[in-house]
């Protein structure tokens, strides 16, 4: 693992998301009502909707374009829809957001 400090957890609103640009594309960091943080692709496999703009509920997010719902633990679309988004290791330490640089295509934190 190669943890990169992204910033304070408060930079993401509760029930909200923020985007980071990475070598593997835009990644959305989600913060749930229970203060958990998840990282996943910011692109819905259906029509490319920006998931970071969706409504965060439970441990899921709903795509703003056509209401596909993804479980943020595994990235799997729920219900009738079939599709998956990649998820990335992320954790919170002392109020800071840390993402695994290896997983998002960065060789070192330098």
């Amino acid at each position: 693992m190669n943890w990169i400090d992204i910033g304070p957890i408060d930079s993401i609103p509760l029930y909200g998301a923020r985007v980071i640009k990475t070598p593997v594309g835009c990644v959305a960091l989600f913060r749930t009502g229970q203060d958990e943080v998840f990282a996943a692709d910011d692109r819905c496999p259906h029509k490319g909707g920006p998931l970071s703009e969706g409504i965060v509920h439970g441990q899921s997010v709903t795509c703003p374009l056509h209401n596909w719902v993804f479980d943020l633990n595994i990235g799997e679309a729920q219900g009738a829809d079939e599709g998956r988004i990649s998820t990335y290791p992320v954790r919170v330490e002392a109020g800071r957001l840390l993402i695994d640089g290896n997983a998002i295509g960065k060789r070192s934190a330098a």
Binding site: I6, G7, R18, V19, K21
Partner: peptide, 9 residues
């Protein structure tokens, strides 16, 4: 965006 990690990469 909260951060841009592409430049360093």
């Amino acid at each position: 965006p909260l951060a841009n990690l592409t430049l360093e990469a």
